Structure formats: structure tokens, C-alpha cells
Simulated scan of single mutants.
Amino acid sequence: MKKFLVFLFLILVVIFLFSFKNLLEIYSLWGKDFAVLIVYNPNFLKEHSYIMNAYRSVLEEEGVIYKEVSIFNLITFDPKIVADFKKIIIFPDGLNQYLPKEAGPWVRNYLSYGGNIFVSYDAGIKDFKNEYLEKALFSEFVGANYITYKKYKVSCFTLGYLYIDKTRKEFLEIPDGKLEKENLLGGYAYGNLECPIVRVEEEKDIKENEIYALTISQDGKNILEL
């Protein structure tokens, strides 16, 4: 009986801590501060915690105020209220491969009220069964379908480099020494930075002045617009 009571107590503690964390997140959305929101799916947080740590590190280094919020908490809020003070929402890669379908209309409304989103790599590319979608959740906002697995299979994913035109270098605040030969993003003494890239398909005409970088596959044959 005593072991059962201890076990029950531990369960109640876990439930309390989980609920308390959610309450803190929800309360933070009411705050009238201009914080950047980092959205995550709790189901991916443990496996991809290093990605969240990377975003935290960069934002803290740049002195940017931010708050972390579960997608399931975020979509319970009126997007207009959120857009009034939280002008930027980041959907990191890895942490948001599956997002509830309700996130699409919510983001559409948030954008209509003046909000801005940053969608990284694979956010919203899978369904709740962990299968790839025909069309990524945020394709209409990005202007391109960024999950083409159904068409290209594993060849839609590859590794490559980031090409930055010199005219965009200043706007993107890229330090001297970060651009290697042929304007590929580098890491000072580490050479060209290799990054995962994906084959995309445009859904609307993207103007040249809306393109800030290109991704180039390792073989140099495949150029994808970002």
C-alpha cells in the first residue's frame, strides 16, 4: 500500500509540473513584451533538444528576448492578440516535423494581423503517423512546397552549401571572412559550411529581389532558391 501511495504521489507531481509548465507558457503569451516566440512540438523536444539549445544560444548571443511555447498551447490563443506584441514566430527544424493541421489556418490569421514567421527546413512536413505529406503545411506562406518526398523519394534530401550574393552580404550582416570562394558561406578556418538541403517546387512566381540566398548541392548541379 505504501509503495502504491508513493507511486501515486510521483504521478501527481509529474502532472503538476507538466501543467505548471503549460500555464507558464500560456501566461507568457499574454505578456506585452516584444519577445520572439520559438515554437516546438513537445513530442520532438527530447530527441532534438540540441536544436533548441542552438536557437537559444544564437538569440541570447544577439541579445534577443525570446519565449518558448508548445504549438498546442499557441494555437489555443487568438492570433490577433499574439500578433499585437509577438511579431516573430520561429518554427525550428527537427522540433516541428509534425504540426497539427490547425496550425495552418492559425498562422494564416497571424500573418494577416501583421505577424512574421521563420520556417526552417522540415517544419510541418509529416502527419501524425510520421509519414511525409504531399504538401508541407506552410507551403502557401513560403511560396514553395518544401517536401517533395512523394515525388523524388530520398533524393529530395541531400547536402550542400549556402550561396550568398555579395549584394546581400551587408543586409544579412555576414562578417568578413565568413564568405569563402564563389560566395559560399564558410566558418573562417573551417571552409565551406555543409548543411542539409531539400528539393523544393515553387508554387508561385518568386521575384528576384525576394531571394536572399541559394542552396547549391555538393555536385554543384542542383541550385535551389531560398
Results as ranks from 00 to 15, higher is better:
F9Y: 15
V14P: 01
V14Q: 06
V14H: 09
F16Q: 04
L17G: 00
K21A: 03
L23N: 09
L23M: 14
L29D: 02
L29E: 02
L29N: 00
D33P: 02
V39E: 00
N41Y: 08
F44M: 02
K46E: 13
Y50E: 10
N53E: 11
A54N: 09
R56Q: 14
E60M: 15
E60S: 15
V64D: 06
E68I: 11
S70C: 11
D84S: 13
D84Y: 12
F85V: 04
P92A: 10
G94V: 00
L95T: 00
N96S: 08
N96C: 12
Q97M: 15
W106V: 01
Y113P: 01
G115A: 03
N116L: 14
V119R: 03
S120Y: 10
Y121G: 01
A123V: 08
F128Q: 12
E134K: 13
L137N: 00
F138E: 02
V142T: 00
A144F: 10
K153V: 02
C156H: 06
F157C: 02
G160R: 03
L162G: 01
L179H: 03
E180T: 08
K181Q: 14
E182D: 15
N183C: 05
N183V: 03
G186P: 00
A189C: 10
G191P: 01
P196L: 02
I197T: 05
E201F: 12
E202A: 12
E202H: 11
E203I: 09
I206L: 10
E210S: 13
A213D: 07
T215Y: 05
N222Y: 05
